[in-house]
Design a protein around this nucleic acid. Structure first.
Length: 299
DNA sequence: GACACGTGGCA
DNA sequence: TTGCCAAGTGT
């Protein structure tokens, strides 16, 4: 006779198994080193938003060598943050990180807050990053939900090939139900489930044959059914998009400390109307400002 | 809630 | 070559 384990029993089994796997298999990443510090964790989390680990590491190390504290970043103009961001993408994150550094310096005495609500109040920090900093920098017990976590839960627990569209409350509840009571085990588990999603339970071609929880995976038990729910909205084509044109303008602005002229900007893209639209949007976002004879990064 | 927002590696 | 995807957030 089949006996279905009760949900709490399965949760405890999953968390214990994943934690043991993580302790033995975690990648050696800078932000996992002892004493990395809350500021380093926070910077890494900003950089890791939608950007792969391998591209983040060199920029992160340069960043922290130059600005080892929030106050040191807050003391320079945002233009320097945008330059140091280099080609990580989504340069507004550099602006937000700079703004957060100013807020931390002015409102929290230069110490990265540990309270989730205090973190949420900082520019550029949302549900994921606030809990990630509280959990990974301070070891607090909060459910941390990112795209990896959502995918692992969808598969291993719900038996679906992909997660349903994000739902703040439901996602936090689902992770909360798996989270060990022990503060230390909980912090480990938040990292462990993300790691599994990042290196084993990947979006495309998951490595189920080496998965530590394959024996209790609901997706496997169900025969790996195809996902039949609502599809993610497909990312729009980048070639020829406003995003591409914004990127070209930002690269030009980053490349120099002087003002970039209209004539120089005109050489970046053949469609003048699209170019002006992109430039106007960058100004609106605070990533570019009008200056003597052209445009510069925000000083 | 859908959408906009960079960049580059990989299949 | 083209499309998918990567530790999200703000509007």
């Amino acid at each position: 006779m089949n006996v279905t384990p009760s949900a709490p029993v399965k949760a405890a089994s999953v968390s214990a198994t994943l934690n043991a796997w993580f302790v033995a298999n975690a990648r050696d990443l800078p932000w996992r080193r002892d004493g990395f510090g809350a500021w380093g964790i926070l910077v890494s989390e900003f950089m890791l938003q939608q950007t792969p680990v391998n591209r983040v590491i060199p920029r992160l190390e340069e960043w922290l060598a130059r600005w080892p504290t929030p106050a040191s970043l807050a003391a320079v103009p945002p233009s320097e943050a945008v330059r140091a961001w280099s080609s990580l993408g989504y340069p507004r994150r550099a602006l937000w990180l700079h703004a957060a550094a100013v807020q931390i310096t002015q409102l929290h005495g230069g110490v990265v807050p540990s309270d989730v609500d205090d973190l949420l109040a900082l520019t550029g920090i949302g549900d994921y990053t606030a809990r990630a900093v509280a959990a990974f920098a301070y070891g607090h017990r909060h459910p941390v939900v990112d795209t990896n976590t959502r995918r692992v839960i969808a598969r291993a627990i719900a038996g679906a090939g992909e997660p349903s569209p994000p739902n703040r409350g439901r996602d936090l509840d689902a992770m909360g139900a798996l989270l060990p009571q022990s503060v230390h085990e909980a912090a480990l588990f938040n990292a462990a489930i993300m790691e599994l999603g990042a290196v084993v339970c990947t979006s495309r071609s998951p490595k189920c044959e080496v998965c530590p929880i394959r024996k209790c995976c609901a997706w496997r038990a169900a025969g790996y059914p195809e996902y039949t729910g609502i599809r993610k909205t497909v990312q729009k084509k980048f070639e020829g998009s406003d995003r591409q044109v914004r990127g070209l303008i930002m690269a030009e602005l980053r490349s120099t400390h002087r003002s970039v002229t209209e004539a120089e900007i005109a050489t970046l893209w053949p469609d003048a109307a699209q170019l002006q639209r992109a430039l106007a949007s960058l100004v609106a976002d605070g990533l570019a400002i009008s200056a003597e004879g052209g445009h510069t990064l925000p000083e």
